[in-house]
Design a protein around this nucleic acid. Sequence first.
DNA 1: TTTCATTTATGACTACAATCATTTTTAAAT
DNA 2: ATTTAAAAATGATTGTAGTCATAAATGAAA
Lengths: 235, 235
Amino acid sequence: MSEATGKRAPKTDAGKAPVLGRRERNKQEKLSRILVAARDLFAAKGFAETTTQEIAERADIGTGTLFLYARSKEDLLILVFKDEMIQTSRTAINKVSPDAPLVDQLMQVFGAMIAYHNRDLPLARALIREITILSHPERSKDVRALMRIIYSGISDIVIGASKREKIRTDLDLTLVGETFFGIYYVGLIGWLNGYISKQAFLKTLRAKLSLATDGLRVGKPATPRGSKASGSPKS
Amino acid sequence: MSEATGKRAPKTDAGKAPVLGRRERNKQEKLSRILVAARDLFAAKGFAETTTQEIAERADIGTGTLFLYARSKEDLLILVFKDEMIQTSRTAINKVSPDAPLVDQLMQVFGAMIAYHNRDLPLARALIREITILSHPERSKDVRALMRIIYSGISDIVIGASKREKIRTDLDLTLVGETFFGIYYVGLIGWLNGYISKQAFLKTLRAKLSLATDGLRVGKPATPRGSKASGSPKS
DNA sequence: TTTCATTTATGACTACAATCATTTTTAAAT
DNA sequence: ATTTAAAAATGATTGTAGTCATAAATGAAA
């Protein structure tokens, strides 16, 4: 979607119906062929082992044409998988058991993402590498869209949980979402780099989420959140 | 250190004094020239703009020789900067104000790391990209060493804080370190990708660390940590 | 239909990371 | 000193991502 466009509809199209001209349709069709070819080859041979020549050949376009649709091979990777990742996240969030404890719900969401990456670890490594630090800034929009979906999904889960568990109501939920996601992300990286097993990852992830949920402190929160730093601690 | 070695000392060296043979010394010296050349060029021209040819030329070695000392250009990047990053982390941890609140102490540590990366953002991007997903698994040892230093540093800070603030004593401190680091890392990525300003990064980082420290819950911890999941919640 | 400007496509070409067959160096053994 | 085996160095060569000058296609205007 929204790829390699940039031209307005012909003047004859006065209404807002998306009647694309032949030119635009050709482009869309070509992009689609590229994405299918790339996805198939990445899955079959792996990202590193697939050459852009092969992709172009299979998509039945010239070598140079490929780079009219993706800025680089890495860019193509994001282009191919972003929708799938967004869909995976959306589905994971929607499937959450409505009455389960917060930490269980979070584990359901992150567990679905982990299962997704588990299907093809080398591919997951390539994807996370590129998502983490983009080689081309224009793809920011897509990554941020994915992040927004995840963060707002987590926020919603926390809101839902706050009606069942004792949760502070004065929180900036975006921060909460980012905190949980950060815990997940570093664990994911450790797993993908082979520092820990999947099982250990899942186990420590749950422990860390509990930790972040319960907090470190023994008593009630010391900082009265909302304004600057430091206030009058001591219980 | 410990780079491109693998040969035992000559038999004449019966003791364990590190009297390196000429061969070993030559290799060390060559490696040193490579690292200096690479560091200078990366700093002057940037990582992407520096060619391995240039590095080899400046180090006064053949093109192929370079790859006897580093598996790839990215590998070289880690080789060049790992000691510096370890040193930065160590120093940051040691410099922490001993009596400051926990969150302030954590901000001192992460702030030092942020300042380090702030000196050269494109280089920081390249470094974080490679550290996050290694292109060569043998470099794992170096990255894990860096992580261990950071995690244990954070653990120590939490231990110190537990004597001044009300902090649970039954925590797995490694998990705590990883949690705080995860919060930092995702923020760092957001900053390096230009999603947020440095100022916003610092501000939200503090907020998230407070959040993780205080926890989400209103009352005392609900889960009796230590064993499986779920127990008998409800206050 | 023909003209013309603009967009899109193409593949020969370039630049560069990384390899590898060959050569050189090293140091131990004789 | 000479031989020999192993280690290290080398640069010509290779594979591939990405570019760019040129060509083809498109559609609006005449």
